[in-house]
Simulated assay, not measured.
Amino acid sequence: MRYNTLAVHITNRCPLTCAHCITDSSPRARGDLSWEQVEAAVRSAAAYVDGVCVTGGEPMLLPELALASIELTRSLGLRSSMVTSGYWARDDNRATEIVRRLTASGLDKLAVSFDQYHLVQPTAPYVGETTLHHLLSASSGTDLEMVVQYCGPQDHDAYDIATKSAHRFGARFEAAEVLPFGRGIQLARRRGATVDEVPETACGVVGRPVLTPEGDLYTCCGPARGAPPDSPLRLPLGRADDVGDALSVASRDPIINALYVRGPRRMFNMLSDPARQRISANLLNGSMCSLCRAITDDPGAVVELRAALTPLALQLVAQAGVVHVRASDRPNPTTAFTKSEENECLR
Rank of each mutant, 00 (worst) to 15 (best):
A308W: 00
R276Y: 06
R262V: 09
S272C: 06
E39P: 00
P254C: 09
P331Q: 06
D50M: 11
T194D: 08
Y117C: 06
G300I: 13
A250S: 13
A318C: 11
Y117A: 11
P153E: 10
R168Q: 08
E39F: 06
V49T: 04
A313Q: 13
L235N: 04
S26F: 08
C345S: 14
D115R: 07
R330S: 10
S139D: 02
Q154N: 10
P125Q: 11
A275C: 13
A104E: 13
A202E: 12
T338W: 15
T219W: 10
G226M: 03
A246L: 09
Y48C: 11
S165F: 03
P199S: 10
Y87M: 08
D298W: 03
G152P: 01
G184S: 07
E174T: 08
T11E: 10
A40M: 08
Q277D: 14
G226T: 05
P209I: 02
L76P: 02
N282K: 07
G215Q: 04
A138T: 01
V317H: 10
A95W: 03
V205T: 06
G128P: 02
A281N: 09
V178I: 15
D92Y: 08
S280N: 05
A224K: 00
L61V: 06
E36P: 00
G300Q: 15
L314Q: 09
G207D: 09
Q186G: 08
V325C: 14
N257W: 04
I255M: 10
L132T: 01
V178G: 02
W88M: 09
I22H: 03
P274S: 13
N269M: 14
P228G: 14
S137Y: 09
L110K: 01
A29R: 05
P15S: 08
P63F: 07
A40G: 05
V325D: 11
L284N: 02
G51A: 09
T131C: 10
A111N: 14
Y159D: 03
V249K: 14
C289S: 12
M288D: 06
V178E: 08
C14D: 05
A336D: 08
A240L: 12
P232K: 00
R101T: 07
W88E: 04
D196Y: 07
E341A: 07
Y218G: 02
R347K: 09
N269Q: 13
V195F: 08
A124F: 11
R278E: 11
P236W: 07
N332A: 12
S113W: 04
D329T: 06
Q315N: 13
P264N: 06
R347C: 13
V210S: 03
S231H: 01
A47K: 10
T310D: 11
S75A: 11
L305A: 03
L132E: 03
A176E: 15
S26L: 07
C151E: 11
D92C: 07
A327L: 14
R189C: 14
L78N: 01
F114K: 00
Y126N: 14
T103H: 04
L76K: 07
L291Q: 01
N12R: 13
L107K: 00
R168M: 14
D196Q: 10
E145A: 12
L136Y: 02
